[in-house]
Simulated scan of single mutants.
Amino acid sequence: MSVETHPETTETTDVVEMVEIDAGVDEELLDETSVSLFEGDEGGLEYAQRRALVTLLKQRFISARTHPRDWVVLVEHERLIRSRLNDLFLDLQLDRSREVAWKRQATSETGVRFPTMLYDAAWSREETLVLVHLRDRLRAGVASGDARVFVDREDVVDYVASFRPPHATDVSGDDKRARNAITSIVKAGLLIGTGSEDRFEISEAVEPLIPLELLQELLEALVTANAEAPAEPDDPADLFDDDADADPVAAGDPAEEQ
Rank of each mutant, 00 (worst) to 15 (best):
T107F: 08
T107G: 06
E109K: 10
E109C: 09
T110P: 07
T110W: 10
V112F: 10
R113L: 12
R113P: 06
F114W: 07
P115K: 00
A122E: 10
E126Y: 12
L129H: 03
V130W: 02
H133Q: 15
R135H: 03
L138V: 00
A140M: 04
A140T: 05
A143T: 10
S144H: 07
A147M: 10
V151P: 01
E154G: 10
D155K: 14
V156P: 01
V157N: 03
V160L: 04
V160K: 00
S162Y: 04
P165C: 06
P165Q: 02
P166T: 09
H167V: 14
H167D: 10
D170H: 08
V171P: 10
S172R: 13
G173Y: 04
G173S: 04
D175K: 15
R179V: 04
N180K: 15
N180L: 15
N180A: 14
A181L: 07
I182T: 02
T183N: 15
I185P: 00
G189D: 01
G189C: 04
L191I: 06
T194D: 02
G195H: 04
E197K: 08
E197Q: 12
D198P: 03
R199P: 00
F200T: 06
E204I: 12
E204P: 06
E204T: 13
V206Q: 03
I210G: 03
E213C: 12
L218V: 13
L219W: 11
T224N: 14
A225M: 02
A229R: 13
A229N: 13
P230G: 03
A231L: 13
E232P: 02
E232S: 15
A237W: 04
A237N: 10
D242P: 06
D243G: 13
D245R: 14
A246Y: 08
